[in-house]
């Protein structure tokens, strides 16, 4: 709890410190936290942010351009211009812009959009990508260690971490794979279901750890979108004739109804992954927003008296979010399995 308070307080001060006269802006602070960033900000030390610089990788007209994010000197207002590989780059609200050839500084229109700069393709290792790799390393460590321990014990009895992992794996198999897809076909989908379950879960948990300044990976729509697209591709590729018949020519209903149902089913085909994407993204993001909003109450009211209340509330929400991390991973996995099951279901009329 102390960590939580300290780390979020760090955030708040970061936003309010540079301009002492500027009002504390809770919305900006929250959005800054929830969004991706090009550097891994750890904490502030004597008014200066201590952070991990991450590489910026851009694909510009001149080809691949890379430089360290530290060159921006923590500037996020588009003031610091970095020249690399014949291009001029600025960072504005955690986005990298390339200035047009003859421009020397960023010009803004009235909605604060730059007018003389465009965005190159950005493959930077951002905070989220970095945390994703950390989570992958942790997952690999856990599961490969677990798998090894089976080989070591001759009688196949789980020892060590495998004893903790096995019930979860069996849960995914028996509660998600088997009932949703069916006894005969579930085996093909098990690696995907298991991977997606643990990948989402661990990233949900990492998002809640405050000292990592909560890289909000699973609350980022790019992440959920990618996973939803994977589910969509697998569903579409494994769809059998029965599945397509149910979409284009629903059996067992009169012809006008078939024509009426067809567009609905086609829309449904796309709505399913979209709802997967939105559900995970919005759940996790909303959780983070609520925790941070409760925390920023302290700074909005500029009073220590409010701290116990807001700390207690955000502790409560954090505990709920810990449950939500598992539930959302479960929901994403079980719905994916449900869609696979629908795609592979045999006609039973």
């Amino acid at each position: 709890m102390l960590f939580l308070a300290i780390s979020f307080a760090g955030y708040a001060s970061e936003d309010s410190d540079p301009n002492k006269d500027e009002e504390f802006n809770a919305k900006e602070m929250i959005l800054h936290h929830v969004k991706d960033a090009h550097e891994f900000h750890l904490w502030d030390w004597k008014g200066k942010p201590v952070s991990l610089s991450l590489p910026i990788i851009l694909w510009t007209d001149n080809g691949l351009t890379t430089f360290s994010s530290s060159k921006f000197h923590h500037d996020d207002q588009g003031k610091e211009i970095v020249e690399a590989n014949g291009g001029k780059f600025v960072k504005l609200h955690e986005k990298i812009y390339q200035l047009d050839a003859n421009a020397t500084s960023v010009a803004f229109d009235e909605e604060h959009h730059p007018t003389n700069a465009h965005r190159p393709l950005n493959f930077s290792i951002t905070r989220n990508v970095f945390m994703m790799w950390v989570s992958v390393a942790v997952l690999l460590l856990i599961f490969i260690t677990a798998a090894r321990s089976y080989k070591k014990s001759k009688d196949g009895v789980p020892t060590g971490i495998a004893g903790f992992i096995e019930p979860l794996v069996v849960f995914v198999r028996d509660e998600i794979g088997k009932p949703m897809i069916g006894e005969h076909k579930y085996k093909r989908y098990m690696p995907y279901l298991l991977t997606i379950f643990f990948f989402i879960w661990i990233n949900n948990i990492f998002g809640l750890i405050p000292i990592l300044n909560g890289a909000n990976l699973s609350g980022n729509i790019a992440f959920t979108c990618t996973l939803a697209v994977f589910t969509f591709i697998i569903t579409t590729l494994s769809g059998n004739s029965n599945y397509w018949k149910h979409i284009f020519w629903m059996p067992g209903v009169p012809v006008p109804m078939k024509i009426f149902l067809m567009p609905i089913e086609i829309i449904g085909m796309f709505v399913k992954p979209i709802s997967l994407m939105i559900r995970l993204f919005a759940n996790i993001t909303a959780g983070h927003v609520i925790i941070l909003a409760l925390m920023s109450l302290i700074f909005v009211f500029k009073s220590v008296a409010i701290a116990p209340v807001s700390v207690a509330f955000s502790l409560f929400i954090t505990v709920i979010e810990i449950i939500v991390t598992a539930i959302q991973a479960y929901i994403f996995t079980i719905l994916s399995a449900l869609y696979f099951g629908m795609a592979t279901e045999e006609a039973h009329h």
């Binding site: 989220n128 990508v129 994703m132 690999l140 690696p191 991977t195 990618t226």
Partner: peptide
């Protein structure tokens, strides 16, 4: 960028875990 990295990382994770863990 994040879509790109997520896709690559996820595929990598899927393949490795399928072979060495699942």
């Amino acid at each position: 960028g994040l879509v790109f990295w997520t896709a690559i990382t996820f595929l990598f994770l899927l393949l490795i875990l399928r072979k060495f863990a699942w």
